[in-house]
Simulated assay, not measured.
Amino acid sequence: MPTPARRRPTVKDVAEQAGVAPMTVSYAFNHPARVAEATRTRILEAAARLGYRPDSTARALRSGRAKQLGVVVGEHLSYLFDNPQAAQFLAGITDVCVSEDLGVVLIPTRGDATDVDRVLTAAVDGYVLWTTVADDPVLAAVASSGRPAAIQGGPAHPGLVCIGPDDRAAAAAVAAATPLAEATPVIISFPLDRRRTSGILRGHDLPVDLMDPQAVPFPVTGARLAGYRDALTEAGHDWGDVRIAVVERNQRVLGEDAAAALLRTLEGSGPVVVLAMSDELALGAHSAMDRTQRQAGLTGWDGTREATTSGIWSIAASLREQGRACARAALSRDIEGHQVPWSVVAPEFLHPDTTAS
């Protein structure tokens, strides 16, 4: 015969055990300064004997604070742990939460009608949003929720603090650091649309205004493509003829496959410059170049040691610091969005003077 479930002790049980009024027990846990130290000690001892713990949900309803920060993720949740830079971003958020004695709630979105309810019903005091698309209904829902929120990388939205580097300027700078004039440029790009369509395009297949969120809904992708176009045009290349491999996700193996596919579209064996939107994609491209023994310059993004020691130019814009900045913004209504510092990082075999910002 199953053992009957033990009744959960209540505030009244603790009050009776400690010989005080139920309101005094409530004050002991929620407003300890209102209770004499000896009385509070007696109440806590009684609670420990009974196994009583305050109901965190009820406490949150009374105080109006959940003491938790929501992190809204448009990727698979495992991406936050599998991708080194996403893990750094999450680590930055948790740095702030630890110092503020807060918990973290990871809230996945799937791009369907359930997203808004899932996000808004989470018991959190504010939100940090990972980069998403401009027409994501979660943006408007969070902005109108009355809770402070910050988004990393955009898209900009009224009521949300936007934090990230100047992607367009940084992309132009890292591309210009390579020998563009003497090589054939190709690009490995993040997704251009919510469906994450992959494939190989040419510059003339893309919208004229890459910064228009209606044309390229992922703002990071549009800004970096615009920066690459700026540098390539300045170097004398025909943007319309530039080959661009769009990958579904930021994974090294996809960078390797994309680079191999791009090489198959090129004639001859002349030098190539591969402009990749992350170090993970660039490292994948590096493997493809090694396998085919093709001479190539490579750029990435994130400034990782693995990339720079592999001969890859990169952009350093600390995602851990961006995570901290987003968390601080999501805990305060007074912090304005800002662009984070970035710098071009040269491969380690080059002289330090070649690094620019």
Rank of each mutant, 00 (worst) to 15 (best):
R8V: 15
G159R: 09
H351Q: 13
D257G: 08
E100K: 14
R7V: 11
A296Q: 03
G222H: 01
G70N: 01
M277N: 07
G203P: 01
R229D: 01
W342L: 04
E306K: 08
Y52N: 05
F218A: 11
D205R: 12
A175Q: 05
R196S: 13
G222W: 01
L225H: 00
R328A: 06
T10N: 12
P4S: 10
A325I: 12
L180V: 05
R110E: 09
Y52A: 05
R59Y: 06
S278T: 11
A307L: 07
D353S: 15
V116A: 06
V72L: 02
S357H: 15
A215G: 07
L160P: 00
D205Y: 11
G64D: 05
S332R: 09
V133M: 07
L44G: 06
T57Y: 10
F349C: 09
Q88A: 14
Q152P: 05
G270T: 11
E336T: 15
Q17I: 09
R118A: 14
D166A: 13
A122D: 01
L266P: 00
A86D: 00
Q251R: 11
R320W: 04
E348D: 15
A134T: 08
T265H: 13
N83H: 12
G199Q: 13
G303A: 12
A28K: 04
A245E: 03
W313P: 02
D257L: 14
R110Y: 15
V246G: 01
S357Y: 14
A276W: 01
P137E: 04
D290A: 09
D353F: 10
L90M: 09
G159E: 10
A285L: 06
A327L: 10
A282G: 01
E16L: 13
T114M: 10
A215V: 07
P341F: 08
I335D: 00
V71G: 00
L206M: 07
L254Q: 09
A58G: 15
D112Q: 05
S314L: 08
A170D: 02
L232M: 09
T292G: 04
V247C: 02
V116S: 05
L80P: 00
C326V: 09
